[in-house]
Amino acid sequence: MKFHRIGGCVVGALIVAASLHAHAQSSGAAPAVVASAGASTPVQAKAKAADRALRKRVLTALGKAKGLRASGVTVRVNNGAVTLQGWVPEQAQIERAADIAQSVPGVTAVKNELTLSTF
């Protein structure tokens, strides 16, 4: 019998659930509550939406900046903290990108991981 990857996961989940149920029955313990993977609360969803909006504002600011080639820059945001990753063609642009990101309203911190590249 050949299982597809998803079928194996379903079978594994059923085995774990049955095992937990059997353990709860034999030990007299309260039934275990298993949270569904990937579930988020409304607060978490709102925070993610705010981070996405902030990321867009930072990318827009970097794209509009004179003297900055931002095509190799990736922006990540987590709770208002911005991480700049990727490359720029000139050393001066590394610091400039961080200054621009820090100037965007809502940014709480900037971690600059940009590197110099001559591509």
Rank of each mutant, 00 (worst) to 15 (best):
A49D: 09
A49I: 07
A49Y: 07
A49K: 06
A49G: 03
A50L: 08
A50Y: 02
D51N: 12
D51I: 11
D51L: 04
D51T: 12
A53Y: 05
K56M: 14
L59C: 04
L59H: 12
A61M: 04
A61N: 03
L62T: 00
L62D: 00
L62V: 01
G63A: 11
K64I: 10
A65E: 13
A65G: 01
A65P: 00
K66E: 10
G67Q: 09
L68E: 11
L68F: 04
R69V: 09
R69P: 03
A70Q: 04
S71L: 02
S71D: 15
S71W: 13
G72R: 15
G72Q: 11
G72N: 13
V73R: 05
V73L: 08
T74P: 05
T74S: 10
V75Q: 02
V75A: 11
V75K: 05
R76S: 09
V77M: 12
V77W: 05
V77T: 04
V77S: 04
N78W: 09
N78R: 07
N79V: 00
N79Y: 06
G80N: 01
A81K: 14
A81Q: 11
A81G: 06
V82T: 05
V82N: 02
T83V: 02
T83A: 05
T83I: 00
L84P: 02
L84H: 01
L84T: 02
G86H: 10
G86M: 07
G86K: 11
P89K: 13
P89R: 11
P89T: 09
E90T: 15
Q91E: 13
A92P: 02
Q93C: 11
Q93H: 02
I94Y: 01
R96L: 13
R96A: 14
A97V: 00
D99K: 15
I100Y: 02
I100V: 03
I100F: 03
I100K: 00
I100Q: 03
